[in-house]
Design a protein around this nucleic acid. Structure first.
Lengths: 345, 345
DNA sequence: CAAAAAAACTAAAACATTTTCGCCTTCATT
DNA sequence: AATGAAGGCGAAAATGTTTTAGTTTTTTTG
């Protein structure tokens, strides 16, 4: 390992000068600075992150917490897309990303202690809605900026998907195509779900559409079987819906199975739309009409918020970024009435 | 931030003693050791990873490199499963995991330099077969143990999925059900693909099954459209196969679309099986018969190899771990002849 | 040309640890 | 009582870097 001292000796200058040359300090002559840099390059110098962090108290590391009760972990495409873009943006901003578990070094401490131990400059919290509330209190103890996903807490910055707006788009899309008997299968009771429900009711009311209580049926996110059961209930109603909205593409696919079991063709006999926009949803048949969330945007914004706050130092203001999704038109929904305009594009 | 010095002052002992107490050194009396530990706990002491790493030259960090040309990144379920299990096992072994990019700190250096900069105790290389060969040479310059996935290089340890064995299982399964006209749609020319092809031909030869060259058709991994085109060619043959094997579940689903387009029912009119075992493959209809790779096992073994080699220090021996998958029986394949035994279980 | 100012460079401290070596007790053994 | 051994503890060096506060050298100015 080549150190500043070794370069200094080779160049016949002091360690301080080498440090300055490599960090572009101003009080060094152009000539020596160049010479030192050349020698450093030759010797294959690579700074020591630990020493740097120790001295400057900056690690240029973002911690990332990834946890949810269902042990799917990163296999949720929504989460892995966020992570992907967060990684890229962080690297571009000069930060490395470290996974933070609750048991740093084998000992069972909390996330905050882990973050403090590693001297993180920021923490990105991606947690399923099922556990985020338990975690966030702990994480806050870390004395660095924090950003969490799809959840808003007092004192914690966040990046959220605009679920109200997304749901509005979806419902308006269905209504525009002439549907008036629209059912909504929704996920567990989380703030995300509540936002979507709120929006669903609001838009329906705006358009003068009555929503029978049986049309709003609870299910579980990412659970195909559960959604299938929910669809069964809907189809057994005396007056079943003409269009069903699903909470995510997994549920969507589960629901489609029930349509098929009943001999219903989509979209000829019944329409459907969903939320998420998984890659696969465009490969299956019929292609799903689904609201693709801007997961990439969320990762990018999270990295940018953390980087900015890390630069500025405490106190850390609470920031919010709201990202909007876009409808990916598929083949699962069609005009319900003859006298209605064809679907946009 | 509470340091050893602060604890020492509070306890009226030396810094050295505090360090020893917290690290369980032997030359300290039980009494003082207990007292120091209690005070440290009270004060909320958390060691400084940077100082520790600087002094001991061990960072307890594994670097992870994740790269492939197709920019799907972690959204490939196979990769995210590996990553997930690697994370968990690493944490249990006392290591944190850091993402390694090619541009540490904004400067465009290589992966090896990044690993050296962060003083990684090991590097885990997950790269798509399309880029791994370009990367591995660079990575080797890092003077720490390395494990890569699904690829075998001289001088580099690796964890591989037993593609020969997996393919054998799949082919034998089809043959056992009476199929003798078996086609194989395969991915790009990589070592993984070659292993599967080799195995495919071997097993067919063993069982005395002739494979017409048109039955082996190239496609692209994770590309549904490509697979659909391949299926089209197969179905246009004068004597089409009775069973089609796909390189992955995405392709599988693409192929299924073509079956449907032709009005073929699966498995009544044609059988199919695949490779990967994505979660979703068990939610769609018909449920896919697919060979689920032991991705979790791969992540675990990778972490264990790195940890062991990091403990033992150089020189680092080249280790290989071979993991085997398991057939997940679905509904896409059925006995072809009447006089044949029913499918196992 | 002397003095002042600016430029170029360095010594040393500081960051939080671990670890080696040596010192001082205490206690048991001759 | 003298010797030795062992146990318990501390001083200090070392890790690689940044940064402050000088110190030396060069340049400018009157």
């Amino acid at each position: 390992m080549v150190t500043l001292r070794m370069i200094a000796e080779r160049c016949g200058v002091s360690i301080a000068s080498v440090s300055k040359a490599l960090n572009g300090a101003s009080d060094l002559s152009q000539a020596t600075s160049m010479r030192i840099r050349r020698v450093a390059e030759e010797m294959g110098y690579m700074p020591n992150a630990a020493a740097k962090a120790l001295r400057t108290n900056r690690s240029y590391t973002f911690g990332i917490i990834f946890e949810e009760a269902v042990q799917h972990g990163l296999t949720h495409e929504f989460f892995s897309r966020i992570l992907n873009s967060f990684l890229q943006r962080s690297e571009a901003l000069g930060y490395d990303v470290l996974f933070l578990g609750a048991q740093p070094g084998g000992r069972s401490l909390g996330y905050a202690d882990h973050a403090r131990y590693r001297n993180c400059d920021g923490v990105f919290l991606i947690a399923g809605s099922d556990v985020v509330e338990n975690i966030v209190g702990d994480v806050c103890m870390a004395d660095c900026p924090i950003v969490c996903i799809d959840y808003e807490f007092d004192g914690v910055s966040s990046v959220v998907s605009d679920n109200e707006h997304g749901m509005r788009k979806l419902v308006e899309y269905a209504i525009q195509l002439g549907h008036r008997r629209i059912a909504f299968i929704h996920g567990e009771n989380t703030n995300v779900t509540r936002a979507r429900l709120r929006s669903f009711f609001t838009v329906c009311a705006e358009k003068g559409i009555k929503v029978p209580p049986e049309y709003v049926v609870p299910s579980v996110y990412h659970n195909a079987e559960c959604a299938q059961v929910a669809v069964r209930a809907l189809l057994d109603l005396p007056e079943p819906p003409t269009c069903v909205l699903f909470p995510d593409d997994f549920s969507y696919i589960g629901g489609m199975n029930e349509f098929r079991n009943r001999g219903l063709n989509v979209p000829a006999d019944i329409s459907a739309a969903g939320y998420d926009g998984m890659l696969l949803s465009q490969s299956i048949w019929p292609r799903l009409t689904t609201l693709r969330q801007d997961a990439e945007g969320m990762g990018v914004r999270a990295a940018e918020i953390l980087a900015r706050q890390a630069e500025n130092g405490p106190p850390y203001p609470v920031e919010r970024a709201v990202l909007q999704g876009v409808i990916v038109p598929g083949e699962t929904i069609r005009p319900q009435l003859a006298n209605v305009a064809p679907p946009p594009r």
